[in-house]
Design a protein around this nucleic acid. Sequence first.
DNA 1: TCGAGCATAGTTGCATACAATAATCATAAA
DNA 2: TTTATGATTATTGTATGCAACTATGCTCGA
Lengths: 230, 230
Amino acid sequence: MTAADRVYHIIKQRILNGGYAAGSYVREATIGEELDYSRTPIREALRRLVSDGWVEAIPHHGARVVGWTQHDVEEVFELRVLLEPQVVRRAAKRISETQLITLGRLADQMERLSQQDDERATDGIAVLNNQFHAELVTAADSPRLQRLLETIVQVPVSRRSFHHYTREELLCSMQHHREIIRALQNRDAEWAAAIMRAHILAARAAQMRQKQTTTAAHVERQRNNELSIS
Amino acid sequence: MTAADRVYHIIKQRILNGGYAAGSYVREATIGEELDYSRTPIREALRRLVSDGWVEAIPHHGARVVGWTQHDVEEVFELRVLLEPQVVRRAAKRISETQLITLGRLADQMERLSQQDDERATDGIAVLNNQFHAELVTAADSPRLQRLLETIVQVPVSRRSFHHYTREELLCSMQHHREIIRALQNRDAEWAAAIMRAHILAARAAQMRQKQTTTAAHVERQRNNELSIS
DNA sequence: TCGAGCATAGTTGCATACAATAATCATAAA
DNA sequence: TTTATGATTATTGTATGCAACTATGCTCGA
């Protein structure tokens, strides 16, 4: 792993953790001294973050961390509703028995965790859920589709959403996973796609609802029409 | 415009023109001396080309120009069939009168050119067609959707396809443009999406057919399962 | 004759110094 | 008081030299 790779991941992590606030500038020299790298790998990392859409390059003024508005989140869901069903449509024709077993195991674990009701369990579910979707993307076997999804589905956004699910929504989501697996076992592309579509639309609904119930701590952000991403 | 920008465009152009063959390496030092830049802007340009998907970075071995297989083309069409209808679905709700007029003018010009039947006219149609689609993307007003399309729709591929249309296919394509405009005038998102879907599937059919009718000059490429991109 | 290991060459990866550019602030004139 | 203009400063953009790494070919041993 090169220095540029390391710097890339460090900065990305900081953006996700809120270490760098939206709108703030990431200076090449500043972070370079802090991490004890020269500006060269920092520059490369920032360029990659720009093309990933995490920061925007202001010519001769630096790299600014982008802010997420409610509108951005809606845009992403609109695209996920198109692309994620396509993932399972392809997966239905290509998935292996081994992959189906893996998906089943992930669904088992998620269901077990969803019995409990604490923060740690929810975190666990979020991780497993990401693995579930990653396995589906692998089974879909389309590098371009994978890249498009990686481009738009910023992990923290979808991950955070789990924390705002009601108990009912959580169970519904678990049901979806089971049904997706059944559809894939039957090699039924359209069935799988239909459930995945519902799965994403349900996630969107939860996210949209959360939009309303903002705590006082987020008032400033709301004023700027921005969202916490971590 | 910075040196890195210039280098980026030069290399990209050369890849499109066939100056750099698929599979060949673009050496930082070599092209640096040739264009009389240091390696730094060259590196940056190559990194951008990597993230655009034009070249792939082999660690410690250089940037290799990627080759397009028939399979890649199919993958792209599969995604365009999803995304381009979404463009007009959004555009139907947002497009302005001015933009509708612009689209109408572009359709006029394309139809006029399609009366003729020489290479230059076909080139002209290709350019106008790109403008037509670009106008639709603008009207859709979704930066992310725009970025995804720019990522996957490599202009030369779709552009070349026009040259392989039969007379009938060309007229059909012109009809599609007209009907898309009518659907947008009626603010009918699903009508517009349906026609756009047909439009892309028709383009795919033409492309797939062309796969069969390869000239002797392309035998070597065919042997490697690669396609001309320019 | 085959394989393992080592040397070497060629390429990218990184650091540092310098150049260029644009924003900001102060100052002066209208 | 406001605006324009120029100096200054902060920041990115570029060049160059050196370091690190990988692949390749050669040599030596089995």
